[in-house]
Computed example of a mutant assay.
Amino acid sequence: MIVALLNQKGGVGKTTLALHLAGAFAAHGRRSVVIDADPQGSALDWSQARAASSAPRLFGVVGLARETLHREVPEIARSVDHVVIDGPPRVTALARSALLAADLVLIPVQPSALDGWASAEMLRLLDDARIFRPELRARFVLNRCAARTIIARETAASLEQSEHRVLAARIGQRVAYPEAAAEGRLAFERDPDGPAAVEIAAFAAEVLEVGA
């Protein structure tokens, strides 16, 4: 399965979700690779930090910020169980190529009316891609949710008005994620029984169910 995390809006947590999704897959014995398709290269930076800390390798990270993703990623996918694409913000040609490569698109959205509106451009690109890939599936994922806030429910309700559903799994606003990233690690490695580990496990399980 090839999963692409995409949103034309930056700063919604695509890289964090991509790395943790690949890590959750790897923790269950699935061979995974992250494609860093963002010219900023944050996933590659994380991989370098991990290598410097001598942490064990969980999955590969490959830099591929090129408009030929749709031709190259399927070849990479032949040797692994899952490919997770960390997509670029605002780079439309790259995003289109990632859409054409993917089996499932995850659109991270923060609980905010502004983020909900900003997803409209991503949905237009998705509609264009489905002309060529009518089987392409997409889901919204609410990220950086504060506990028990009305705005998260309102954002989810607003997004549900599109044809693409919102994943039931929600990812919280937790310091565990940036703290782990600074060490080249994943939140569930630092605290295997913590709330971040629980929500990432639920997120990965739901992605596998949707992608099945």
Rank of each mutant, 00 (worst) to 15 (best):
R137M: 13
E75A: 06
G10H: 07
S162E: 14
P192M: 13
R96P: 08
M122V: 04
R66S: 01
L21I: 08
A146M: 14
V3Y: 03
D45P: 10
I35P: 00
V83D: 00
V105I: 11
R144I: 02
A24F: 05
F132D: 10
W46A: 06
V34W: 00
R165Y: 15
P74A: 01
A24G: 10
L58C: 01
G10K: 06
A37H: 06
R170P: 13
A176E: 12
G11A: 07
S79H: 06
D191I: 12
E163A: 15
I171D: 12
L6W: 04
P108G: 04
P195S: 11
L208S: 08
A212I: 12
E206G: 09
A120H: 13
A27Q: 06
I131Y: 04
K14Y: 04
D128I: 13
A77L: 03
H70W: 02
A181M: 10
A43Q: 05
A187Q: 11
R170Q: 14
L44W: 04
P56V: 03
N7T: 05
R50M: 03
E72M: 03
V175P: 10
V73Q: 01
L94N: 05
I171Y: 15
E206D: 12
R153Y: 15
A197F: 07
R31N: 08
G10C: 08
R139A: 07
V175S: 15
L106P: 05
P195F: 07
R130N: 05
G184N: 11
E209T: 07
R30F: 11
L94M: 09
R139Y: 05
V105K: 11
A146C: 11
R124S: 11
R124Q: 14
A168F: 15
L58N: 00
